[in-house]
Design a protein around this nucleic acid. Structure first.
Lengths: 209, 209
DNA sequence: GAGAGATTTCAATCATTTCTGAAACGGTCG
DNA sequence: CGACCGTTTCAGAAATGATTGAAATCTCTC
């Protein structure tokens, strides 16, 4: 099995095949997230080739239109996972992917939190504020001053509703704080924490219930 | 502002409004993930009302078709975030959401890992195996036995390719291990870890670079 | 085992997202 | 300036994904 001495041409072809496989797998996963398949594929291509490519390279390799390539590149720049590069004596713009996998996913985590969790948290807080003033719960539960035909059953439902809302709120606030810790301050935070948590040190916590 | 004594009817209306807001916010976020908006809304409805609802309740409240409700409920059951319930003397099936937010998101994490990360890891391993035999890297770099017109530049590209592939592989393996730790063994793992990591104890690590 | 109610399935329809191609734009060089 | 080269924008086309509604299936009960 190991005795398949390949010609450079065969090697070249195998390499390209491997790259294509990588790109396909990555694109697949990308579409399971909010990201468009093409965008993920562009990122994968830039990462796996490792060298700066221009728009035409990408169009050709991925068989996509110029517009699509341009849009995807712009989006990736916005996400902060690729950067521009220039070649001397060449007016074209080239693009290259961040070669540090952890940095790359830190950037992605940061963006996704910003786009998905933050708005949700805002909504939840808004709703909570509203129910807090309009449907004031326990806090003034002993202060009398209530409509005389107050319904205890309804009151309880409202209290429970607020409790559930608060649980959700606290959950997302914890997640938010966690991701802040990983993403923003010290660059190595995430990697270190992950390595720590995966190390045998904490293995004792992993006992079946 | 606090002196708006509300009639039970007003309270009831406010409660429903708050629920609707919650459902909308949740559905919004759901669609940013791979989940369909409706599915997220059903989950939100079941969570925030806290009581078991039947298909018709859900259809009516969310204004969706029977088929859609059925499909969404089935999917949520598959994800393991809601469960069936029955009312005495009623042939209808009722559904209720897991009321523990952390359990709920543990289930979601587990499912998403299974559906998205595991297949990716499988693909990456497959690709790596292929390039390993066909484009053997450093390991036999000194064993002579190579095509005589071996191209050193190509060789280097292949090595770099394999390095990048390995980085990505190691990253996802760490993530996989991490999520295993959180998700599968002791139920409280995730919550505890999150609380720990968010506590001031580790705050020292959060210094700007 | 026939009927009634409840649930699931699925082809057709509808909505949303993604992609294309061509035109508009912008900067650079002669 | 004005021709050239490259990039961005955007309206419509294509692809994909979600939803419906009605028929098929299931499952109790009598």
């Amino acid at each position: 099995m190991r005795e398949t001495p390949q010609s450079p041409e065969d090697q070249k072809r195998s390499l390209v095949e491997a790259q294509d496989g990588f790109i396909a797998a990555f694109g697949q996963m990308g579409s399971a997230w909010g990201i468009s398949r093409t965008m993920a594929e562009v990122q994968a291509l830039l990462y796996i080739t490792g060298e700066p490519l221009c728009t035409d390279d990408i169009m050709e390799r991925l068989r996509i239109s110029r517009g699509n390539a341009s849009m995807s590149l712009r989006a990736l720049l916005d996400w902060g996972v690729i950067s521009r590069a220039h070649k001397r004596g060449d007016r074209k713009e080239y693009f290259q992917a961040d070669q540090d996998v952890w940095d790359m996913f830190r950037a992605i985590l940061r963006e996704r939190m910003k786009r998905e969790v933050d708005p949700l948290l805002a909504s939840l807080h808004e709703i909570r504020d509203k129910t807090n003033t309009e449907l004031a719960a326990k806090s003034d539960a002993g202060r009398g001053k209530r409509p005389r035909d107050d319904d205890p059953e309804l009151r309880q439902k409202i209290d429970e509703h607020n409790t559930r809302l608060d649980s959700m709120l606290r959950f997302f606030e914890t997640i938010e704080a966690l991701s802040q810790k990983f993403v923003s301050p010290a660059g190595r935070g995430l990697k270190i924490a992950a390595t720590l948590l995966t190390s045998p040190l904490l293995a004792g916590g992993g006992r079946e219930r």
